[in-house]
Design a protein around this nucleic acid. Sequence first.
DNA 1: GTCTTATACATAGGTATCTTATGGGTTGTT
DNA 2: AACAACCCATAAGATACCTATGTATAAGAC
Lengths: 115, 115
Amino acid sequence: MTNPSMKLIRGTLDVLILKTLSWTPLHGYGVSKSIRESSAELLQVEEGALYPALKRLEARGWLEAYWGETETHREAKFYRLTSAGRKQLQAEVTAWQRYVDAMASVLYREQPVNG
Amino acid sequence: MTNPSMKLIRGTLDVLILKTLSWTPLHGYGVSKSIRESSAELLQVEEGALYPALKRLEARGWLEAYWGETETHREAKFYRLTSAGRKQLQAEVTAWQRYVDAMASVLYREQPVNG
DNA sequence: GTCTTATACATAGGTATCTTATGGGTTGTT
DNA sequence: AACAACCCATAAGATACCTATGTATAAGAC
């Protein structure tokens, strides 16, 4: 009844990708796999979301793309985090945390505002 | 540089409304105000999002609407949480928490998966 | 040796839900 | 008299997901 991977919440994919690429460059498929694995299969990035997102982030200067070879000797497009991307990552993690806190202040309050 | 209300993340409004109405019925404007106040001005629900959302939740049977009078003696449409809405609230709070945890497992990990 | 699964990229079309803009009207304060 | 706060509602535009589709290669099962 639990688990089988949730749909992504809009706006949360970018920060997941940026964070994943903060360790090491990866190709698209690898990014997706890494996110899935590090979230215990909960976050599944669909390809139709993944590739446009990578292009988007590259267009904004947060990622740099280059063609390379995978461990299994296949051609793949790798993405590396730029320094602008690293700043963006910081900003987005902070924004996400603030949002989570704001949500918590509403969802876990025990009395209404004028209660 | 901080605060002045963040844009809502898609999909998070419904649970905010349901939770707000779990205390007492309120009219639309009151729901918006309550969310804003209990989130320390961080979450501002635009009217263009608020009223469609209320209709949506009513259509799904999670809210019931009725016309009444405000404390300031004005006509207003009040919404009350149904029992189905209360179940939905529980489910959505749980889902949100799971999502937050999944995000945290990616964003706050200190080593990559194969690190 | 063929089938299936996993690896790898990419785009088109559909959908949902937000923001912005606009419209209407009432009450209270300066 | 003007303005802010209170109240409702919808249309148009933007964004970013999901689903479906297409291509291609490599590895493993049978």
